[in-house]
Design a protein around this nucleic acid. Structure first.
Lengths: 213, 213, 213, 213
DNA sequence: GATGAATGAGCCTTCATTCAT
DNA sequence: GATGAATGAAGGCTCATTCAT
């Protein structure tokens, strides 16, 4: 038992960390309760500060929400947009998909997705931000590889934008299903990897060149 | 003196219609405001009844929300699960997709989807209901046709469940994107029909038998 | 012992009286505490209603304050502006002064005066209202009689507006002093009537015609 | 490197001036906002010190207010109570009135008057202080000259205290009206000097000996 | 059944005051 | 002495729920 740690932290947390602490706590509480039901008291408690302290760093609850969403999205984005190009466009594409999938399957993505959906009316700029930073960014990334695959005749000739949307759409939706597996029996007995492989396989089949006939 | 009639509405609505009126109003207000921000006052006003009347038919706001979601989902489901089977499984599948697409593109679907997403934590049973009535039901429907197509060698041999999920996932996600076109440039300049055709074409390509090669 | 009355009023107060009850309570609490320090809880309690009820009739604290001031001023104004004209302008003037003095010496005037002074910055329209309804109205009234007195040679020829301001100014200030007698020893040992007589006497002396020389 | 000096103020204010700086800032902020609405943050900022510093010199907001009022009153009082006596009591009286009028028309008087009025309930000792230092002091001063004027038969025989109150009352009230000219049309088109002359003239007429007739 | 006035718990926000540095 | 980040009590306002009519 190391009860001592539960009594008093020896060093106060550095003040420079306050915004981060608060944003982290806000993420958790908003995730659990949604914007309206979340109480600033709870966020403060979870951040280990007093209610008033929040207002030293954020003008109000809405702005805290906004900042938290923006921050979390930005912190999550790690997609190397200029992915290393190997000889095979197919390999590159699959590699990118793997990275994107692991982003979609992180614990933060479904939470953010839900929060943004829920507050679409009140915070359209957040939806805009999400659409740009998550979807459009992914779109550019995948579109590039698919285009390359077409040019190299690894893929059949098709509108790369369409293929990209199919790819993105099915990945995003599968990620959401996977995060609520109990509700969706068709993914319930599959692991994340299995699901990913199935998606990849399906997409590649759709992209494969037409039979020579 | 019949002065009173000149102010009052000419026909009183039948009392039996009350629950329906309230549910309809609830749908509109919840759609616009979300659960927490919706005020019973507004719902009552929109339903043309008094606030107290709502409590004659629903025990509280949460239950009204639940009932509204359940009701709206049920009212929307029109998918003929045993669709008429023609000679071509491909034709049957496309026909089913067309029906499902028009359901997904109805004005109620994206609203319901958002409400359910937002209240996932507090009303898991609604998510369950949605998963069953909308996704699983669609899953059974499409799976059947794909299975048939495989058996008839119209489609390549693949796990029909996987194909179904890809089909459903991309349709649902495209529907959501289409309902917020301004945020998603890649669907912005396309009509619903175009998007549908693109999805169908892509899916059918993925399903087509492997080249004889 | 009539304890019964302290348990439950037999009849609820008529709802039409609510605004009046609240305004009355507001007057008392604002009088004691000022705008900022007054708590809506206290006003509600004193009005015998709940906090929420106040918001059924007034949109917020400030508006309640405004309404209370306006209302109280209007309720106090009873100056017969077209006072009956007797043969003597002097008598008429003194009669009017007596009426105005009793208004100024009412328990509400000093309270209102103080509240308006205190909130001059935030509610200039109230000061405007007071200036118009209390001062300007009195000005017109007295000016008329003084003008008449000059014409009838009961008073010396002087600017009636100046005389009126002197009259009003000294009456208002004396009223304020009288309402805090303990602070102002020079009025402490005098009754209201005495003070009034002194003011009247002084004013009439100032108005009396110049010596024939 | 003397980079630091380019940001910092060239001369640090002497610590002994701190209380004065704070009191001055307090006067301004209390004047603009009133006691309740004034924020210590603003006072600190205006004084060029930090919030905590205020508490090094004043135990709390109320005491700061008290001190500020007392200080400002004392700083304003410049009335030579034993004004030089010339041959004419009338001239002396007018001279004193002129001095008092310029005090009443200073920018600080109406502000203080309003603050004291507003906080009458919570700070009766300030009202007491004002009554003594401003009104009673003026009373003694004017009473003396009027008494002398009566003895020298420059004025008619009347209670000098009554005359003094009339004089003070009308001057104070006119000063307040003049400081809110837009609300009081009867002084709006008159200059301070004109108003003063009118008051003086009226008072002297009221004091002049009765006609020999 | 229907109404809508009344209730009061609950929460965001402010700001005087404290205190570690 | 001086700072300003942190605190937490207090209060305005909202709105789901009740209930007398």
């Amino acid at each position: 038992m190391v009860d001592s740690t539960s009594i008093e932290p020896r060093w106060r947390r550095m003040p420079e960390e306050r915004p981060r602490q608060i944003l982290d706590a806000a993420f958790e509480v908003f995730a659990e309760q949604g914007l309206a039901a979340a109480r600033l008291d709870d966020i403060a408690k979870r951040a280990g500060v007093s209610k008033g302290t929040i207002y030293l760093y954020f003008p109000n609850k809405e702005e805290l929400f906004r900042e938290m969403v923006r921050n979390t999205i930005l912190a999550q984005i790690e997609i190397g947009e200029q992915a290393p190009e190997t000889a095979s466009a197919t390999d590159d594409l699959v590699e990118c998909m793997r990275g994107y999938w692991s982003f979609l399957r992180s614990s933060t993505f479904p939470v953010l997705y839900r929060l943004i959906q829920a507050e679409l009316r009140n915070f359209p700029e957040l939806a805009q931000f999400y659409a740009e930073e998550v979807i459009a960014r992914g779109h550019r990334l995948f579109c590039h590889h698919i285009q390359r695959g077409i040019e190299k005749a690894e893929f059949r000739a098709l509108d790369p934008s369409v293929a990209t949307r199919m790819l993105l759409g099915s990945m995003v939706m599968h990620s959401l299903w996977c995060s609520k597996r109990s509700f969706f029996p068709s993914v319930a007995e599959r692991s994340d990897e299995q699901v990913f492989d199935e998606i990849t396989d399906f997409i590649l089949h759709a992209l494969r060149p037409a039979p020579v006939a």
